[in-house]
Structure formats: structure tokens, C-alpha cells
């Protein structure tokens, strides 16, 4: 990276109270303060948010795509974690 290139930041926005921050995209900024200001101007021009998180992309750790099977498939077979696995007589309420 040259001296003039700004690092990449990922932007997360809470669109309204009660909802999670959601990833909306990325941008370039020299530091966190300007990353937040840039995010405000780039990603909330149409009142899309009430709160912004930014994190430098380099700080994000992700699961390895090659290990996705090992990571996620084992849970597919554990259907007993879902309420639909269990049978309850028709008359039972509030369950």
C-alpha cells in the first residue's frame, strides 16, 4: 500500500431502533473518525440509519470457505434443536 492509499473499512448500519447493525458495504478512510463521517455521507444519504459501526476490513476474521463443510454441516443433522422436532397433542396451548 502506498502512502496515499487509505485502508478499507467495513460499514454496518442500524436502520432503526430495535434492529441489528447490518453490513452495507465498505469504503476507504484514513482513520476511524473519518471512516464514520464518510460512512454517514456514503451510506445514509436517504435516512438509512440511526447508528453506524465501522471496522477496518483487515481486522475481520472469517471462517475458511474450504472448511465450511466441517464447520456447518454437523448442525444440519441435529434437528432435535428445532421445536418442530417434537410432537405435541393438538389441544395443548401456549407452547
Amino acid at each position: 500500500m502506498s502512502n496515499s492509499d487509505w485502508p478499507l473499512w467495513e460499514v454496518f448500519i442500524r436502520s432503526k431502533q430495535g434492529l441489528n447493525h447490518k453490513h452495507v458495504g465498505s469504503l476507504r478512510a484514513p482513520d476511524a473518525t473519518l471512516a464514520l463521517e464518510n460512512a454517514r455521507d456514503v451510506y445514509t444519504r436517504r435516512s438509512e440509519g440511526i447508528s453506524i459501526w465501522v471496522v477496518e476490513s483487515a481486522h475481520i476474521h472469517a471462517t475458511d470457505i474450504d472448511q465450511a463443510d466441517a464447520f456447518f454441516e454437523p448442525s444440519d443433522t441435529k434437528i432435535y434443536r428445532h421445536p418442530t422436532f417434537y410432537e405435541v397433542p393438538d389441544g395443548v396451548k401456549h407452547m
Binding site: N3, S4, D5, W6, P30, D31, L34
Partner: peptide, 15 residues
Amino acid sequence: GLWVREAANAFAKKR
């Protein structure tokens, strides 16, 4: 814009 982007990076490093 080169010197502007450099300045902001230099500042970030200092801080």
C-alpha cells in the same frame, strides 16, 4: 488529491 490522502494517513499514524 495525493497530498491530502497522504496527510490524512500521516496524521492517523502519528495519533
